[in-house]
Design a protein around this nucleic acid. Structure first.
Lengths: 181, 181
DNA sequence: ATGGTGGGGCTACCAGCGTTAGCCACAGCC
DNA sequence: GGCTGTGGCTAACGCTGGTAGCCCCACCAT
């Protein structure tokens, strides 16, 4: 009907990219439930079902979102010193400023095949370095940091709890076990 | 009030209890998405909308479910020695045998007002004991155990990872920091 | 210049979700 | 005997992800 112009709006990259960007905005601004096929369509100026001309299903958009999230998270960890405290602080800061993204990354089971090979190792590398190459210790430290952040985001610490002190206690424990402080 | 007369087949307690029990079965057997108003109705022999004669909304059922989950989890931790390793093992065993319940307990923000006062402290007490009363250390240990379990349930460890070794490394770290081994 | 092809929109629609409105049958009480 | 409250029911609403089928238009080959 009204689609006579070849260039509808100003610069628009390919639709798929636009959709992922729109999904990102919706996710960060209003949470996962707000990322809806019809709202995504509205955000890029099309009608909902037309989305399926560019993407097989909603999961594909979430997968793309997940990918960018993992990359950004890895980048946030790569530019701090490889010590437990610094990595914990960087992870916590990143997660608390992108809580919905953090939930998206952690709440759904990981489809490893949708991730480029190596990304997982890259994201985990700084902590392995901080743990002097001890993989088991690094995994425990990873679980600790993620657990602390999850508990904080989910408001599971009692009101008034000294969260910094919990991070400090964890840092002391892992330092004693051989991690760089 | 019609007691015992029109129930065709099943004798049972009040509907609300029945509904929560049915929700429990659905959750454990098929996961959270299977817990649906209409399916809950079918499970107790009524028609979906009739559920709202017994319960204000679906969240109330999930809250009741959450409550029983927390109680059972606390019980699972109370009958083992107050050491990091024993508590971690007990928590892991409980969570891995009720993975959907575990997700329900952890994925939604905690509505503290729906929990009886004291339950939270009761659930956390064994770990505080194991940490010699050091609250900060206990919270870090709590995050570690929960984090390890979350990662395992979400299949976030690379295939072939030695998960037991990660628990062992955590145990050593917290032991070194003053927790009972 | 003409015709074929296909990309990318659209509307209509489906089943299922939580939830509401309104109707009705029956038990128990006055 | 009638009133009322309880607890069923069906119909329906607005939302969800997703499918079917139509149609316009750009492009390309003849």
């Amino acid at each position: 009907m009204n689609r006579a112009q070849p260039a509808p709006a100003a610069e628009s990259g390919d639709r798929r990219t636009q959709l992922v960007a729109a999904a990102r905005h919706l996710l960060e601004a209003e949470g996962r439930d707000a990322v809806t096929i019809r709202r995504l369509g509205a955000a890029v100026g099309i009608r909902g079902p037309s989305i399926y001309k560019h993407v097989p299903d909603k999961a594909a958009i979430e997968d793309a979102l997940t990918l960018t999230g993992f990359i950004e998270q890895a980048e946030a960890l790569e530019c701090v010193p490889a010590t437990f405290s610094a990595l914990a602080r960087a992870y916590r800061t990143w997660a608390l400023s992108h809580p919905h993204m953090h939930r998206l990354l952690n709440d759904r089971p990981l489809d490893r095949s949708a991730l480029p090979p190596g990304l997982e190792d890259r994201a985990g590398a700084p902590l392995v370095v901080a743990c002097g190459g001890d993989l088991a210790l690094a995994r425990a430290a990873w679980a600790t940091i993620k657990g602390l952040v999850d508990l904080e985001i989910a408001a599971r610490f009692p009101p008034g709890a000294d969260i910094d002190a919990a991070y400090g206690a964890a840092a002391r424990a892992y330092q004693g076990a051989g991690a760089a402080p």
